[in-house]
């Protein structure tokens, strides 16, 4: 799987209008009443695919998210519980139905093929990448566009109960995208292997055998003392803030680097992903 283009949209929490205004300048869409989650997904994807020919290919569009449009969900369920007789308005329902986000992206890009929202607890982007890699590898799609999209938790009370972020780490709006296909020519990087491990005992020898590589960790892996001890130089960079699909950002950063790299992600269940890549 070869990465050809990437786009990072990472901003401190902004109102939806901010992104709608930017989107309006780029593309005419019918997302006037759509959620911030849908808007930043479409915005990030459009910016990633600028200049890429969309026609004559069967596309796979994969969107993953750690907490998607949680502010909208909380608002709707609170209204349901506080005003049981009030209807759920159509756009409120469509905005909490995050199943549709890949549709909005595909529609904006006029992509032919299939589009899906795929996710997993803690490792949503990693599983989506694995799914896209499988589809590309076996010819189920010609080209893949993969996004990790999450809105900031800044305005969501009690966010710390759900995401154990270090103090003073801002929760960001993020929409990071990777366009990949099977062609090495002109690629930024090659994803070499995507491996899953059920235990840290299986992971550590694998990582040691990889040789000299840049190693980047996800939030949970960075909090794993055994991993930190085994790989003291492994990076976990929160200088730009944190967003739910941080794995997408880490992979893009490694793909733009100069050295062979490995990205390690951990779930709360103690499962691991190790994704090796080679910048070209």
């Amino acid at each position: 799987m070869y990465i050809h283009k990437t786009h990072v949209l990472l901003q401190h929490c902004q109102p939806v209008k901010h992104y709608k205004d930017i989107l309006k300048r780029i593309k005419k869409t019918n997302l006037r009443r759509s959620s911030k989650y849908n808007i930043i997904a479409v915005l990030g994807a459009l910016q990633c695919m600028r200049g890429v020919e969309m026609k004559n290919a069967f596309w796979g569009i994969y969107v993953s998210s750690a907490y998607s449009c949680i502010e909208n969900v909380a608002e709707v369920v609170t209204r349901i519980n506080s005003e049981p007789e009030a209807p759920v308005m159509p756009f409120d329902f469509l905005n909490v139905n995050s199943n549709n986000v890949s549709f909005y992206v595909a529609q904006a890009l006029e992509a032919t093929g299939k589009n899906m929202v795929v996710t997993a607890e803690d490792l949503g982007f990693e599983k989506a990448l694995q799914t896209a890699d499988f589809d590309l590898c076996y010819g189920f799609v010609d080209r893949a566009l993969l996004g990790g999209v999450d809105t900031s938790l800044q305005n969501f009370d009690g966010a710390a109960d759900y995401v154990p972020l270090p103090d003073n780490t801002p929760s960001m709006d993020g929409s990071c995208w990777i366009y990949a296909n099977r062609e090495p020519e002109g690629a930024l990087a090659r994803i070499e292997k995507i491996e899953e491990f059920g235990t840290i005992e299986a992971l550590i020898p694998y990582l040691r055998n990889l040789g000299e590589r840049e190693v980047a960790l996800n939030l949970l892996a960075a909090q794993n003392s055994r991993l930190r001890e085994a790989f003291p130089r492994a990076s976990f960079d929160l200088r730009q803030g944190y967003y739910g699909s941080q794995g997408a950002l880490s992979l893009i950063t490694l793909a733009k680097g100069k050295r062979p790299a490995c990205y390690v992600a951990q779930s709360t269940q103690g499962a691991f992903f190790a994704i090796t890549l080679q910048p070209l």
């Binding site: 907490y67 949680i70 969900v73 909380a74 996710t119 803690d122 949503g124």
Partner: peptide, 8 residues
């Protein structure tokens, strides 16, 4: 406020 965030 909600049981969990996300879909995992």
């Amino acid at each position: 406020e909600v049981f969990n965030i996300g879909y995992g």
